[in-house]
């Protein structure tokens, strides 16, 4: 089913080599893909702890699927992330989502700019979420302790948009790039704690985190040599545990 594949992960000694290999495998030019560096890799100290670079290439316009005589496959069959075709990206949903956020901010007496677009990465469901960026001055109140306010806002926007459109559409709400910064911070933390787990031979338990943040940690360490990860405890106190492989 390589025809339907729209993204590819490559591991190579350097980022540049990984991208080059990926483009060759897909047979496309670099302008036809979006490139995510998942791991820049590292030479390590004296060769200790060296990691290869990891990049993901996603086709911007997936090739049309050739009509297949096997089309009658049950539609309930689960497909892997790579094989999910991008969902129809309806611009009216973007406008609706923007309006909901504007309205909520107005009711909260917060002045800010709001912009909605479709994310270039599929979410956990395989669907491409609507991303809403809120920009303005003094917006820390919109984030709140442990992103409590931002998550509450995001949750309600998801519910209201779902009700308006009659179907669940994932929406990610971000304020001044907070989620991106937090993601990078979590990835660094994940690697640091994984190294700690290996060095000490003891499992490392991270702070309680919401599901989306735990997912970032699990994904970051999925291919990290020498550790496995699992989440323990009950919401909202679930924590990622990093376990050294014995």
């Amino acid at each position: 089913m390589s025809e339907t594949r729209t993204s590819l992960e490559i591991i190579a000694p350097t980022v540049a080599e990984a991208i080059q290999q990926g483009l060759e495998q897909l047979g496309v030019h670099s302008s036809q893909v979006s490139i995510d560096v998942l791991d820049e890799g590292s030479r390590g100290l004296f060769g200790i702890g060296a990691r290869q670079a990891r990049v993901r290439l996603t086709l911007l316009t997936p090739p049309p699927q050739p009509p297949s005589p096997l089309k009658a496959e049950p539609s309930t069959e689960r497909v892997s992330l790579e094989e999910v075709p991008p969902t129809i990206q309806d611009p009216t949903y973007l406008r609706k989502a923007e309006q909901i956020v504007y309205r909520l901010l107005r009711e909260m007496r917060i002045r800010a700019q709001v912009r909605a677009f479709y994310a270039d990465q599929p979410g956990p469901s395989g669907e491409y979420p609507i991303q809403i960026d809120i920009r303005g001055r003094d917006l820390t109140v919109l984030i709140g302790p442990h992103a409590e306010t931002l998550n509450a806002l995001q949750y309600l926007v998801n519910l209201i948009l779902g009700k308006q459109t009659g179907r669940p559409i994932p929406v990610i709400v971000d304020v001044e790039g907070y989620r991106t910064r937090r993601e990078n911070q979590l990835r660094r933390l994940a690697r640091k704690m994984a190294e700690q787990a290996i060095k000490t031979g003891r499992r490392q338990v991270l702070e309680p985190m919401p599901a989306n943040e735990r997912r970032i940690v699990h994904l970051e360490l999925r291919n990290f040599q020498g550790v496995t990860t699992e989440s323990i405890g009950e919401e909202p106190h679930r924590k990622v545990t990093i376990i050294p492989k014995s």
């Binding site: 306010t149 509450a152 949750y155 309600l156």
Partner: peptide, 15 residues
């Protein structure tokens, strides 16, 4: 849902 609404309400009130 009610708790998410409480969070936003708290922020609105605090302002």
């Amino acid at each position: 849902v009610a708790n998410a609404l409480r969070v936003l309400l708290k922020v609105a009130a605090a302002r």
